[in-house]
């Protein structure tokens, strides 16, 4: 290996397959993402994007294949062990602490890596970055959808992961909120790698990057944004005109 000048990928899926009873949600997927890369994952509903994320984060155990994170095989690791290795996830259905305040939410995440006063400082920095200072003492359960999404993003960022998985981060957001989220992603990508699942083409153009298209559990195409988005097969899949 020492002779190779191709850097080791940050995360690599090899022949990954996930079956639920008779349904094959993911079939023989090979995918790798480099350190610091921003990758978009698109594909119609039911293509298996969320299931792919669930395997990467240890929520479900792959039926076949393996997942390597910085060369370590992480299949079968507990979700918290995977988180500690440096993979963070913002799930499609928001997972936040609804009964706690914004500040308390962030404190829980911040104290994973910080102690004492440093925790408070990390929380304050995050509140500022996400522009949530004015609602810091509100209960998260009472906030608007967009705000809850950002708080979840804050929870992920505070654990300082090397790879962040974002499952439809802009879903249900207003135009303005979407733009802000795209900007946030721009900032985040300076410090870590990201895999972003999105349907919104405008949003994808905003964060323009390499794209992988999933369809019915398989990779359809992979390439640079402009090429992929003008690919006829991709259009067909999104319009429901499946090639026979």
């Amino acid at each position: 290996m020492s002779g190779s000048n191709v850097p080791q990928p940050l995360i690599e899926a090899r022949n990954l397959t996930m079956r639920f009873g008779g349904v094959t949600a993911i079939a023989n997927v090979d995918l790798s993402v480099a350190e610091g890369e921003l990758r978009c994952l698109i594909g119609p509903n039911g293509a298996g994007k969320s299931t792919f994320f669930k395997m990467l984060t240890g929520q479900v155990m792959p039926s076949e294949g393996e997942i390597l994170f910085r060369g370590t095989r992480i299949n079968g690791f507990e979700p918290h062990d995977i988180a500690r290795l440096g993979i963070g996830i913002k799930t499609q259905v928001p997972n936040v602490f609804d009964g706690l305040t914004v500040r308390e939410n962030l404190w829980i995440a911040a104290s994973r890596r910080n102690r004492g006063k440093a925790t408070e400082r990390a929380v304050a920095r995050e509140l500022e970055r996400l522009e949530l200072g004015s609602i810091a003492d509100r209960l998260v359960g009472q906030l608007a959808h967009g705000q809850r999404q950002w708080i979840e993003l804050g929870l992920v960022l505070l654990t300082e992961p090397a790879l962040i998985l974002l499952d439809e981060p802009a879903a249900g957001m207003t135009e303005d909120e979407t733009v802000r989220t795209a900007k946030l992603i721009g900032i985040i990508k300076q410090s870590c790698a990201l895999i972003v699942v999105e349907h919104d083409m405008k949003f994808i153009r905003m964060i323009a990057s390499r794209i992988t298209v999933f369809d019915r559990g398989r990779i359809l195409v992979e390439g640079e944004a402009d090429a992929v988005l003008s690919d006829q097969r991709v259009r067909d899949v999104y319009l429901g005109k499946r090639a026979a």
């Binding site: 984060t57 918290h80 997972n95 936040v96």
Partner: peptide, 24 residues
């Protein structure tokens, strides 16, 4: 304490606690 707050956080959302990296 951190232990106590994480315990309460588990009550609120066990999944998120694990995504953060605590063993629930």
């Amino acid at each position: 304490t951190r232990f106590g707050r994480v315990a309460v956080a588990i009550r609120e959302n066990e999944k998120r606690v694990e995504f953060i990296g605590y063993d629930s």
